[in-house]
Structures are given as C-alpha cells and as structure tokens.
Computed example of a mutant assay.
Amino acid sequence: MAEIKIEKKKPIWPWIVALLLVAAFVYYFFLRDDETQTQSTIEVENVTPVDSTAN
C-alpha cells in the first residue's frame, strides 16, 4: 500500500504578532511627532497691555 504524507497547517498567529511588533517599532521610531509639546512643557506668558496715556 502507498504511503500518504499529511502535513499539518502551520499556525498564522506568530506572523500576525510579528507584523504588529514591526508596525509598532515603525510607528515609534519614524512616524511619531517629536515636535509636539505636552501639557507639562507648555509655558504661558501673561502679557498685560500698557496704557501709555495713564501718566
């Protein structure tokens, strides 16, 4: 009788995890905007108008 070789399907989830990790690295290193200021680094200068005719 002839032998029939049966191969099991290889799981696809490791490829999905690898693609998600690569996409996360690409976003973190290349697409992130380093110029944006966060709320904690914004400085506000209060300027009051000076009335030169007040003397």
Rank of each mutant, 00 (worst) to 15 (best):
V17D: 06
A24Q: 02
A2Y: 07
M1D: 09
P11E: 03
V44P: 00
A2G: 12
K5Q: 00
A24L: 13
F29R: 03
D33W: 02
V22R: 01
V17F: 12
I4E: 12
D51R: 13
L31S: 02
V17Y: 09
P14S: 06
K5H: 02
F29I: 02
W15N: 07
A2I: 05
I16F: 08
E43P: 00
K9P: 12
K8P: 11
P11Q: 02
S52Y: 08
L19Y: 08
M1N: 13
L20R: 09
D34P: 04
E35L: 00
A18T: 14
V44Q: 05
Q37C: 02
E7A: 12
P11A: 09
Q37A: 03
I16M: 11
I4P: 04
Y28K: 09
V44I: 13
N46C: 06
D34G: 09
K5S: 00
A2T: 10
T48K: 15
W13N: 06
A2M: 05
V22K: 01
K9T: 08
Y27N: 00
S52T: 07
E3I: 15
D51Y: 09
M1A: 14
K9D: 07
N55Q: 15
S52W: 10
Y27E: 02
P49G: 13
A23F: 04
T41C: 00
W15E: 05
D34W: 04
T38W: 09
P11C: 04
F29V: 03
D33P: 01
L20E: 09
Q39L: 14
S52G: 02
